[in-house]
Each structure stands twice: as C-alpha cells, then as structure tokens.
Write a protein that binds this DNA or RNA. Structure first.
Lengths: 132, 132
DNA sequence: CTTGACCCTGTACTTAGGTGCAGGGTTTAT
DNA sequence: ATAAACCCTGCACCTAAGTACAGGGTCAAG
C-alpha cells in the first residue's frame, strides 16, 4: 500500500491541507505515521475517514457530533441502535430548524403581502410592522 | 420626554447593555447624547429602534442586512418597493435553506430506514453509507 | 459621606469551522 | 547542485453576534 503525503491526501479527498491538520487537532483523524523528516504519511484509510466526515457534515452533523459518531464506529461494544439514535436526533434537529424557517417565511410573506410596493418609505407597512 | 440611561433602556428593550453598545459600534443605533459625565442618554425612540432590530433578526435578517434596511428607512428618497425587494430576497434565502434542510432530512430518513437498529456497529448500514 | 449600584473605555474571549502566513526544513526534478 | 515544490510548527486571522472583564469614574439613597 503506497503512502500519501498530506498534499496528495488533500487532493484525493478534495479538502484543504490546513483542514486535514485541523481535523487531526480536533481528533477526527488519527495522528498519522511520520517520516524521519517529520512529514505525515497516510494510508488510503484516511481518505475514507475524510469522506465520512464530509458526508456527515452534509447531513448536518457538527464536527463535535461527527467525533461522537466516530467513537461509536470504533468501539466494538457499540450497537447499531446507538448510531441510529444519533441519526434520529439529528433528524429532529433538522425538523426543528425547518419549522423555525417556515415560521419566518410565513411572517415575511404576510409582510410583503400588505406592501403595495409603491409609495414612500415613510408609509412602508413592512418597516412599520418591524417597529412595534 | 424623560431620558433613559443605558441600563434602563436595556431593561425596557430586553437586551443586554453590552449589546446596545455593540449595536452603536455597528452603526445600528445612533450615537446618543451624553451627559457631562459621559453617560449615554436615550429617548424612547431608541426603544423602537432596538425592537426593529430584534424583529428583523427574528425574520432572519443579519445585522448587516438590518443596517441596510435602516438606511432605506432613513432615506426619504427610498421607495417602498426597495424594502419589499429586500424582504423578497430574504424570502428566497429562507426558501433555499428550507430546501437544503429537506434534502438532509430525506437523506437521513433513508439512512435510518435501512438500519434495523439491531446488530453490531461493524455492520451498521448508516456508518457504511457515510464512508463511500 | 459613604456605600452600592450604575456607567465609562478598551480589550479579550466565545462558538464553529476553518484559512493564511512566517520562518524554517525536505524532496524532487532538472 | 540547485530551484521549485512540498512539508513542518505555531500563531494570527476570519465571520457573526455578541459577552465578559479590568480598571476606572459617577450617581443616588440613607
């Protein structure tokens, strides 16, 4: 198995080099083996790890949560239901955000509805509504 | 019209004192009159201004955007349609966020669906899916 | 007239997720 | 052999929207 320098890894996983070092500091990526020169050396495993992080991020997980997910993943004592529970919690989280955004949307739509779009700002019903 | 100290204003508008000074630094609140001692003195107008900011924040506007909204509000040359346009832009912004969250939700639901919830993590389909 | 509550400025810190750079050392290609 | 490209550490910086002091001055009540 050929080893990757951090630059190669960054290209393969499509992330910034600094981001890899940042993930290492955050404990999301294990400390890699080092050459005598101090250069980091990675195996292909690390690409998967970074993809895991990216995908989890896309699903709305924070790096902190991803860390927890990785701990579950690496602990053989973990049951799959624990992972499932995390996913369900995130689902609720996302639903809460959607609900909140829908409330904003509704309020904004009501405001734009009462605004004719003509007339001076001094009589703008949107601005008036925001003040009281 | 009685004048308010910053502490009174903070209570009336239900914000932190530091937040008021922060808004002043950001230009969201005009620099108030000062007593000889240097103490800030506010009129009731400022309560309305802070409420405006809070309400706009609740609708999803950033402080930067609120600043723009306030500029429109204070410029007599502004037409109401410009305000309306800002509201519509924010509406699109919010809709985009909702759409994105719904995508996450869908992906998460699909993942939890394939997970029986039993079995070891080593065979967890959720974790597996995140890796590839 | 003193004590506690209030206010001032200026600065640093917070969360999240990075990015950028200075000042070095190492590898690789020519 | 040398230049370009790469890597190292450690630190500072970024956005957003504040919060938290420290070290001082002021105000109001008893």
């Amino acid at each position: 198995m050929e080893m990757l320098t951090i630059g190669k890894l960054a290209k393969r996983a499509d992330v910034n080099i600094e981001t890899i070092r940042y993930y290492e500091r955050r404990g999301l990526i294990p400390e890699p083996h080092r050459r005598d020169s101090g250069y980091r050396e990675y195996s292909d495993e690390t690409i998967k790890r970074i993809l895991f992080i990216k995908h989890a991020k896309d699903l709305g997980f924070s790096l902190k949560e991803i860390n927890e997910l990785l701990s579950l993943k690496l602990d053989p004592g973990t049951s799959c239901s624990e992972v499932r529970q995390k996913a369900e919690m995130k689902l609720e989280d996302i639903e809460g955000k959607i609900k909140n955004l829908r409330k904003m949307k509704k309020a904004l739509m009501e405001l734009t509805k009462v605004c004719s779009g003509s007339g001076p700002v001094s009589e703008c019903p949107i601005l008036e509504a925001l003040e009281k």
